[in-house]
Each structure stands twice: as structure tokens, then as C-alpha cells.
């Protein structure tokens, strides 16, 4: 390619070609690689939380097993289906963007947005339960062990006083069952719920961002904004949305499906 050829390129270019690029191929791949680089930062972002989860679950397997019974599996399961389906509809939206079918593109975007709201609503009910059960870490945290399970519970040398003091110093309250076993459970269960809220909270935050992005695209399509003739914005939103899906693919078994021993 010579200089002359490079200039020739400039004469019949796509209206979506930005000034810093030479041709659409270069621009498209730049977007894809840029988006992936961004997703790499997201992977590391969530990765640190997954690391914390792994370490604490390794340290307190029984507590995690016990505490996870307070999460509702069917709600998590339904949410998994909802998110997986929304990923499919997002992929279809991208497909119709590539095919330049505006109507279908809007339809599938709308379905995806609907599913995302669906996810958030179910999540909201789950969180509401947690608030009502006082499972939110902090001064109002309460933890009831219905039936002591697992090795640590049986060992149970009931250091009630010291542990209760720890709890009070944190401002939290522990409700002991009749035989009052291992109040450390309560503080460690707080750790479990801290992780639960941190990770699902961050994930839900990403879902909200996703809704905003897809909503913006939807309205741009509706008002026939010239940028929407170009499929790349939808494709980028799709990549982001699939990433959000992947995070949930890991969160679901880790929080809702802890196997008993």
C-alpha cells in the first residue's frame, strides 16, 4: 500500500468511519479488541472477589454450607434461566443488527431489557427476604442456626461469652438455639453474607449499567439515530451483556449450590 493508495481510501468511505481510522476493518477490529481489553479488566475486577470467596470458603466450609441454606435455590435457578435467555436474545439482537433489520433488532433488545428487569425484580425479592431475616451484615445482623450441622457444630466448645462479646462489639445480635452452639457461626455467616451482597450487588450493578446501555440503544434505534445503521454499538453492548451472564454462571453454583459433605 502506498501513500497514494492510502489517500484513495479516503474517497469512498463509510459515514461511520471515524477520523483516526483508515478503513472499516481496522475500526471494527479496534472496537472488538478494545471491548475485550475492557472485559479483561472486568474479569480481574470480579476475579478478586472470587478469590476472597474461595479463601473464606476454604477456611470455613461448614459455615458456608450452613449459611447457604438461607438462600433460595429456585430463585437463583430461575434467575439463571432468565439471564441465559437474555443472552440468547441479545445475541439475536446483534444478529439482526448485522443483518440491518431494525425492527427485529428493536424487538430483541426490548426482550433482553425485559429479561434484565425480570432478573433484578427476582433479585430484589431475594434481597428483601434477607433484610427481613436480618441477614444483612452490620449492627442489625441476626443469625439463627436451625439445626446445627457439620463437623464444626459438633465440636462446639461453646465459647459463648467471648463470641457474644465480639458480636456486641460489632453491634450485631446473635440468637442462639436451645443448645447454644458455636456463636462464631454467626460472625462467620456474616462473612458469607458480606460476600453474597458484595458479589451479587456488584453483579446487579452491572445489570443496571447493561439496562441503561441497551435502553439507550433502543431509543436511538427508535428515533433512527444515524449511529444505529452501524452494527458495532449493539455488538459491543452484546459482548458486555454476555460477560454479565458469565459472571452469573459462576455465582449461581458458588452461592446457591454448595454441596454438603
Amino acid at each position: 500500500m502506498s501513500v497514494a493508495a492510502a489517500e484513495e481510501h479516503g474517497q469512498h468511505h463509510d459515514p461511520h468511519l471515524q477520523h483516526q481510522f483508515q478503513d472499516m476493518d481496522q475500526q471494527n477490529e479496534s472496537y472488538v479488541v478494545g471491548m475485550w481489553t475492557f472485559l479483561v479488566t472486568e474479569i480481574m475486577f470480579f476475579g478478586a472477589l472470587f478469590l476472597a470467596y474461595t479463601i473464606y470458603r476454604r477456611d470455613y466450609p461448614d459455615v458456608f454450607l450452613e449459611a447457604h441454606h438461607h438462600l433460595v435455590v429456585w430463585m437463583g435457578g430461575v434467575n439463571t434461566v432468565v439471564l441465559l435467555t437474555s443472552s440468547l436474545t441479545m445475541a439475536m439482537a446483534v444478529y439482526y443488527a448485522q443483518m440491518k433489520n431494525r425492527q427485529r433488532q428493536m424487538l430483541f433488545l426490548a426482550i433482553t431489557i425485559m429479561f434484565s428487569f425480570c432478573f433484578l425484580i427476582i433479585k430484589g425479592f431475594e434481597w428483601k427476604n434477607k433484610f427481613e431475616e436480618h441477614h444483612v451484615p452490620g449492627p442489625y445482623f441476626e443469625y439463627k442456626i436451625e439445626e446445627p450441622k457439620g463437623a464444626e457444630a459438633r465440636r462446639a466448645p461453646a465459647k459463648i461469652e467471648s463470641a457474644a462479646l465480639t458480636q456486641m462489639s460489632k453491634g450485631g445480635k446473635v440468637v442462639f438455639p436451645k443448645d447454644a452452639v458455636v456463636p462464631e457461626y454467626a460472625s462467620r455467616a456474616q462473612l458469607f453474607f458480606s460476600l453474597y451482597f458484595a458479589m451479587t450487588g456488584l453483579h446487579a450493578f452491572h445489570v443496571i449499567i447493561g439496562i441503561l446501555v441497551m435502553g439507550t440503544l433502543f431509543f436511538m434505534l427508535m428515533f433512527k439515530h444515524p449511529a444505529t445503521d452501524y452494527y458495532m454499538p449493539v455488538e459491543m453492548a452484546g459482548l458486555y451483556w454476555h460477560f454479565v451472564d458469565i459472571v452469573w454462571i459462576f455465582l449461581f453454583p458458588l452461592f446457591y449450590l454448595i454441596p454438603g459433605s
Binding site: 479488566t41 472486568e42 480481574m44 475486577f45 470480579f46 476475579g47 478478586a48 472477589l49 476472597a52 479463601i55 473464606y56 477456611d59 470455613y60 459455615v63 451484615p137 452490620g138 449492627p139 465480639t166 462489639s169 460489632k170 462464631e184 460472625s187 462467620r188 456474616q190 462473612l191 458480606s194 460476600l195 451482597f197 458484595a198 456488584l202
Partner: peptide, 28 residues
């Protein structure tokens, strides 16, 4: 991103009591 989430967790611990590094809860 790793330091960002780490510092964010400290903020969250201060403001919302999610004590992921809190030794009182068994955190490290």
C-alpha cells in the same frame, strides 16, 4: 481492577459493614 475492587471493599466495609477483611468476622 484488582486494587480498585480491593479499595472499594474497604469503602463498603466502612459504609455498609460488609466486613470482608474484618478479623472480628473471621476475615483476613
Amino acid at each position: 481492577p484488582v486494587v480498585a475492587i480491593t479499595l472499594a471493599l474497604v469503602v463498603v466495609e466502612r459504609l455498609l459493614h460488609l466486613g470482608i477483611f474484618n478479623p472480628a468476622l473471621g476475615g483476613d
